[in-house]
Design a protein around this nucleic acid. Structure first.
Lengths: 330, 330
DNA sequence: GTGAAATTTGCATACGTATGCAAAAAATGG
DNA sequence: CCATTTTTTGCATACGTATGCAAATTTCAC
């Protein structure tokens, strides 16, 4: 039964015959209330349909239960998955997600201004970077910040990602075991740490074994993978294997090769990165490197929760091991 | 230059040599301030790094600039697209998006309680329904609500969707023109209005022309489309065409048929629904019905903005026409 | 330059909750 | 049952901003 005006703690207090403070204490975790008044308050609250006003709360405590989640490439199916899992994880922890989308590789001040205005409890920045002075604003306001799936040049922040360097190495070794003699690496956007590191580990091994390779720069999209693969075989020479910096490009690569009549895995092999759902689809059955999403999310949320409980501003670079998922393209 | 404590309007006022009210007025749209003080205030604000506290604002105005966006099936690539476009649209309007994810077809009270606690300015519910008493809570709190891509049984709410009934009819007529003699319809979750209406329009035309058809129930997932297609041709009879209730299932259908050696479009035709990005991929080139996403988003946002400006609680069922996108599977 | 009108400003207060402090109540010990 | 400790409660105030109202300032017409 709602009145016309919003129900406040004062209303509940009056009905329950207690003070507003007591009502507040019932809803404030860790505050002391006797069982008797708690029951009285809850009964009255239920009757009136009372719900604590989060804004008034935040105004006092100077903190919210909102996590800012900044995403860039939602066209990559890897990220919707990340988004839903984060949302589920935070819901379980009693936090909500303020979603911010950006198209720029580097976040601008305006993109994240809203997060500061809302005084979010923590921020996750996915698949993008930001200028340091913008990032420092979070530090100044003691808002914990995690870069997810991006490693930074500086040591001043906390980042969680897959161990891309090691993954690149393992992929190379796996292909060498398969007897592959020359390779192509198709990179994602070159200004991303993910692509660079995967590449570095991969090339490192190839060079040590003196395996010839070619690198093509692409952009983390299906169309990019498709066109780049076409370009790579235009000369007529088909390499023995393609390592593609993410799955969505790898699917484009597979389709381009199929369209050109190149048999996979007989004539060439393709290996992707991420292990998105589509990699397991029957028409692709893409061998890929699985990102340990659950673990990455775990490290991210637990860092944020710790920092929200007691801010230290500590930095770090967490890298979680993934695993090779072998399917039918190798 | 940030102090340790958060910068308030009072600090800015002191530095600028004006009152806190004046600072407030500078940041409050539509309030009267002289150009002189505005400049003084902005200068001082910039120097101190002032940023109005959204919570204090909301506490007074009793409204926020947050839109609650409730999503269900983010595994369907149709929705990430919707999410980013909504986010972009609202950002342009000065609103932020609180993202809520649910797995249930019917939202529970707890799913949306957070939206009430945060006193969101408006709510969009995508791809899900909710019990009426939950929905009524929004009405009681005068929070505008739009069901996106779901039509309700009752007339009490506002919904925006594609004209699914008409789309079903047009698809049927298109296939008939192609000389198709018998058909299969693969439905999505049967408790969704989208699937039911597409089906109704489709069958209506077929029945009036006395074209035989079979219906298979599936679940809006790739795997569902794949398995259902296999089941449909298990008897050995391949229908002349498949109408599949969404693209992701249609892709599964295409893959299943390919895997069984059924030639598309020669031996059978497949037509999907949504026009997700993947429908245009070279290895699929799926003919499909394009949902007019931009228009749907436009109707949703403008309804919400109107209702936020002056709440009327008016209901309605907006249905926007889509269009057939002809590719290579028909 | 003067008086009236129009605009701008500051003052004071309100929004709904959390919290330190002191008073009240309950629990404990003898 | 009383004295003491512990727990619970209410009071009063603070959080940072918006806004009605009256005072102060500016604008305008003559």
């Amino acid at each position: 039964m709602d009145m016309n005006h919003t129900v406040t703690a004062k209303d509940v207090a009056k009905l329950a015959g207690v003070s507003q403070s007591s009502v507040s204490r019932v809803y404030f975790e860790g505050a002391k209330v006797s069982e008797k008044t708690r029951l009285k308050v809850l009964a009255a609250a239920k009757q009136l349909g009372y719900r604590p006003n989060e804004f008034a709360r935040s105004l006092i405590t100077n903190r919210t239960r909102i996590i800012g989640l900044v995403m860039k490439g939602v066209d990559n199916p890897f990220y919707p998955q990340v988004l839903t899992r984060f949302t589920a994880a935070f819901k379980a922890l009693g936090f909500s997600v303020l979603f911010v989308h950006t198209n720029n590789e580097e976040l601008e001040a305006e993109d994240i201004e809203i997060l500061l205005n809302y005084n979010v409890a923590g921020v996750i920045i996915t698949d993008a970077t930001m200028s340091l002075n913008v990032a420092n604003e979070f530090k100044e306001n003691k808002i914990p910040l995690v870069f997810f799936n991006r490693k930074l040049q500086t040591d001043d922040f906390y980042s969680v990602s897959c161990n891309n360097l090691d993954a690149g190495r393992k992929v190379a070794m796996y292909l060498l075991e398969k007897g592959v003699t020359d390779m192509v690496y198709i990179s994602g956007n070159e200004d991303t740490s993910t692509s660079r590191e995967r590449q570095r580990g991969f090339f490192e091994v190839l060079e040590s074994r003196q395996i010839p390779y070619t690198k093509y720069a692409s952009n983390y999209t299906y169309e990019g993978g498709y066109q780049t693969a076409l370009k790579a075989i235009r000369s007529g020479h088909v390499p023995a294997a393609f390592f593609v910096a993410n799955d969505i490009m790898a699917l484009g690569t597979v389709d381009a090769l199929k369209q050109q009549g190149v048999k996979i895995p007989e004539e060439t092999k393709v290996i992707g990165f991420d292990d998105i759902e589509m990699a397991d689809w029957p028409s692709y059955q893409l061998t890929t490197w699985r990102q340990p999403v659950e673990k990455m999310i775990h490290f991210t949320t637990s860092y944020l929760m710790d920092e929200i409980a007691a801010y230290t501003g500590k930095s770090g670079k967490v890298e979680v091991d993934g695993a090779l998922i072998e399917r039918l393209t190798t």
